[in-house]
Amino acid sequence: MNWFQTILILLCAFLGVFAEGVLTFPRSLLGAQVDVLPVLMVYAALNARLLAVVLLAILGGIWADTFSANPFGISILPLFAVGFPIFTQRELVLRDLPFAQIVLGAIAGAAVPALTLLMLFSGGHKPVFGWGTLWQFVVMSLGSALLAPFIFKLLDWAQGAFGYQERSTNQFRLDREIRRGKILK
């Protein structure tokens, strides 16, 4: 099994969650922080195995909730709810096109926080919510859309540079072997 891609995605999620908390940009300028996890989920759903999607949803959600006032584990389901449908329909998506990456990044960037807020309100929690939240959704969605092609390129490059290709099954068929030489009668 090729674990490199899964580990690479999880490593990016780990560093991304930390960076979101430590960096003040773009929060200081635009009033909202861009989330890396939805874009990574889109990448994992389009390019990796189902296990990577599951692990990213669980670990990424847990890491995000660790530094947040969110209830522990609430971010898991929104991430998976975005990644799972993309994974099941990924054969229909032109994943190498930047346009597809941008559109999926924008949808994921808005859907994950919207679902998280829905779960928070359903659980009786009271997050900061108002008309400004709409602007935050716009920033998160656009931020994810812009990040998507960059993250796709970065992870594809890292996979090509450091990963290894799985050995393909043997295509040689004995019954199609061309035998050379004289035909003996």
Binding site: G21, A32, Q33, S68, N70, T116, P127
Partner: peptide, 14 residues
């Protein structure tokens, strides 16, 4: 202050 809340809907810092 070492960190801010990654979620935009809480005002917390570490």
């Amino acid at each position: 202050v070492v960190m801010r809340d990654p979620a935009n809907w809480w005002f917390t810092v570490q």
